[in-house]
């Protein structure tokens, strides 16, 4: 929902930060050239702040840009962007003090199903628009309907569906490149020594790419949906992410990017962690 009041407050805040020399650049959105798509904008002149928008097209997760930003920056974030920032801070990829975070409630009219974090969890200033601010510590009990529906299918049906989905992939890596959780200097998919997977769109390589991509962001994915929106071929990437979000929630009672003192679940362990794989794999005990 385009809320002119929220927008003018965002613009005003951005202008003030640039004017006061607090930051050199404001990362936000400007109007795009394609219906429904606003475009990332890097504003360094205060006059240009009027071009900022906060509307239904602001779906991309802007946290990605902080990774390569060398200037002192302010960033305008919605709920999921802020959660990605929390992750990047806890993973020592960015420094909190180098960043001014302007938070505002998610402006998407059709927000992601089940999203409970529309309002940023971390900010220097929150643009209040009357949205309900939920104190969220864990939302592990969240259900992912797509996963539950999918699990009703037989193994063969599930496999056929997933093979069908990944066979659409053209390996443009847009899903990876828009994802704020993907910041490896060299992605396993492009490594040459050793070359883990081929460079073709052979279905096996596509499948391994997508399974590993999902596993690499497991416990860190904030379900912003950028990967799926970026995919030009309409691959149902979020299904895999949702499955792992659900698993991480139920096994480790964790959801990423909610608290700055979080310990990511794959960086730690408990002696009495569940071992569901033993039972399923026909192991002993």
């Amino acid at each position: 929902m385009t809320d002119t009041n929220t927008l003018s407050k965002i613009q005003e805040k951005a202008r003030r930060l640039l004017e006061d020399g607090k930051v050199e650049v404001v990362i936000g959105f400007a109007a795009g050239t394609v219906p429904g798509k606003s475009t990332p904008s890097f504003i360094s002149a205060k006059e240009d702040c009027e071009s900022l928008v906060w509307d239904n097209g602001c779906s991309l997760n802007l946290a990605k840009y902080v990774l390569k930003e060398k200037r002192k920056a302010a960033i305008i974030v919605k709920g999921c962007d802020s959660r990605s920032l929390v992750n990047l801070i806890t993973e020592n990829q960015i420094k909190r003090e180098n960043l001014y975070i302007i938070g505002a409630a998610c402006p998407l009219s059709a927000s992601c199903a089940g999203c409970q974090v529309k309002v940023p969890v971390i900010y220097d200033e929150l643009i209040e628009d009357g949205s309900e601010i939920r104190e969220v510590s864990t939302i592990a009990e969240r259900r992912y309907d797509d996963v539950l529906e999918f699990e009703k299918l037989s193994a063969e049906e599930r496999k056929a569906y997933v093979y069908g989905e990944v066979s659409k992939c053209i390996r443009c890596y847009a899903c990876r490149n828009v994802c704020p959780a993907c910041y490896c200097k060299e992605c396993f998919a492009e490594k040459s020594l050793p070359q883990w997977i081929g460079k073709t769109t052979d279905i096996g390589d596509n499948l391994i790419f997508h399974l590993i991509r999902a596993l690499h962001v497991a416990g860190r994915c904030v379900d912003c949906g950028s990967c799926q929106r970026a995919c030009p071929m309409g691959v149902n990437l979020r299904l895999l992410n949702h499955k792992l979000l659900m698993e991480v929630g139920s096994l480790y009672q964790f959801e990423a990017g909610l608290k700055e003192d979080q310990i990511l679940p794959l960086n730690t362990y408990q002696y009495d962690d569940p071992q569901p794989f033993l039972a399923k794999g026909g192991g002993h005990e």
Binding site: F150, A214, L251, H284
Partner: peptide
């Protein structure tokens, strides 16, 4: 092995999810 255990749990559930027979990938 305790860190590995968490990785294996997720891998295993993901493989089950995409329809790979549980016997194909085992841990012990």
């Amino acid at each position: 092995n305790l860190v590995a255990r968490r990785k294996f749990s997720l891998l295993k559930s993901l493989l089950d999810f995409v329809g790979v027979e549980p016997e194909r990938v085992q841990f012990d």
